[in-house]
Design a protein around this nucleic acid. Structure first.
Lengths: 228, 228
DNA sequence: TTTACAAAGATAGTAATACTATTAAATAAA
DNA sequence: TTTATTTAATAGTATTACTATCTTTGTAAA
């Protein structure tokens, strides 16, 4: 039996569903490639069009603008990651083990185990680390949010919060801790690689250092010393 | 006696020192105003020039491009904040109290106590919360970093790390915890106001909620329960 | 007092970006 | 077959992010 993961995306994110046509799938595949290669700022629809042999207008038929395309691929990533987290944790008994596994998934590079056809998850993971915050760091967050385009991120955050509460039902900040784990995993890794003096991991560049820090942080908070 | 805070900025950040001329000071003042009002993406040198009655070329004599100007004002903020942290903590005895004070300073809105002439620190604080990460989330971080333009951020991070070690000399991640405090303070506040379901603070929008979360997180990590 | 020289202002120009509009070709429904 | 409708191709525009050049003005050393 052949399984293939199909992620249903929010329809507000696109003008035409890119998963349904060859050109659409090329747009996703190559935008990931180009953004990964040169960064979101230097990414343009013109360059993308050139790369896949279509025109700018061709791409505008699928996406309103390049920010929406970024939100699309970032959201896709969060959905994919939630699925991946589910797959890797539901055979684990204790919530502590689940949480450790989640931290590990968030903080290490992707080994391409949950396969999809037209998306390179490894590149996408690196894109999200560097460009992910730009999806919501805009003046139009509020309107974007009303269109529910950040739902995948929130869903992942909610799913982790549930496990946090299983670890300690009395813990007061499950959602904030959850979003903190996600964000810290990404930017400590970014700092480690690019601004190492903001971390304690020097030039070692070992994902497991970030994992160590995060586990320390999270489990100390969930199982605190009995001081007032 | 009149005191005025003069912050020496890295000379790589500008072509001509904006603090030294009237036009330069107008550039800083009004770029803060405009970026605060409409966001960094929609900010252009043309709009800025129009606002202060000069031309684009006039501004290009001071800053190479708008990203450098962003880094300039963000760096200025970090330097200012390090000074402010110093002022507010050196009368405190215990490092725990110092750390609490620092968290408070980072997570609350600025009350304009450490005065400067041509910078509105309140606006600047809000800019850094939303746009600060864009200073380093670029493809040219590495080259930028070689020019030491992120030094103020690192210095602040270093200063907090020292206090963290005073709290617990055995703590293994002083720098990562330090950068985490800074980042979490900003984006939990951003989430609280813009994407509240990523936090536990609902629509309450109370800075003290973020402070509570951060204190819990930090002190649990620094004084953990004795489990291995 | 002249010279000089740096800062600011004015004007123009360019390549690239982020789009929009129009028209033509292909395909599907009636 | 005719007629819609979708899809593609071409062209065009306003704005952005610059660069270049030339003139004026204040200021300060010779």
């Amino acid at each position: 039996m052949e399984l293939s993961l199909q992620i249903k995306m929010n329809e507000k994110l696109f003008l035409r569903n890119p998963e349904e046509t060859e050109l659409g799938r090329e747009i996703i595949l190559n935008s990931i490639f180009l953004i990964h290669k040169a960064g979101f700022e230097s990414f343009t629809f013109k360059k993308l069009a050139l790369k896949i042999g279509t025109t700018e207008a061709g791409i505008y038929r699928y996406f309103e603008n390049k920010h929406r395309l970024l939100v699309y691929i970032v959201s896709w990533y969060w959905s994919w990651l939630e699925y991946k987290v589910m797959v890797h944790t539901n055979n684990l008994k204790s919530p502590e083990l689940k949480l450790k596994k989640i931290i590990q998934i968030l903080a290490t590079d992707v080994k391409d185990d949950v396969q999809t056809k037209h998306v390179d998850e490894l590149l996408l993971h690196e894109i999200v680390r560097m460009e992910g915050a730009k999806a919501y760091l805009t003046r139009h967050v509020t309107e974007d949010n009303k269109q529910r385009i950040f739902k995948p991120y929130k869903d992942l955050c909610g799913a982790i919060a549930v496990i946090i509460l299983e670890c300690n039902p009395k813990y007061k900040y499950p959602r904030s801790l959850s979003s903190t784990i996600i964000e810290v995993a990404h930017y400590q890794n970014f700092f480690m690689k690019n601004l190492p003096s903001l971390t304690d991991f020097g030039k070692i560049k070992d994902d497991w250092k970030v994992i160590g820090f995060l586990e320390d942080l999270v489990f100390a908070s969930l199982f605190p010393a009995t001081r007032k």
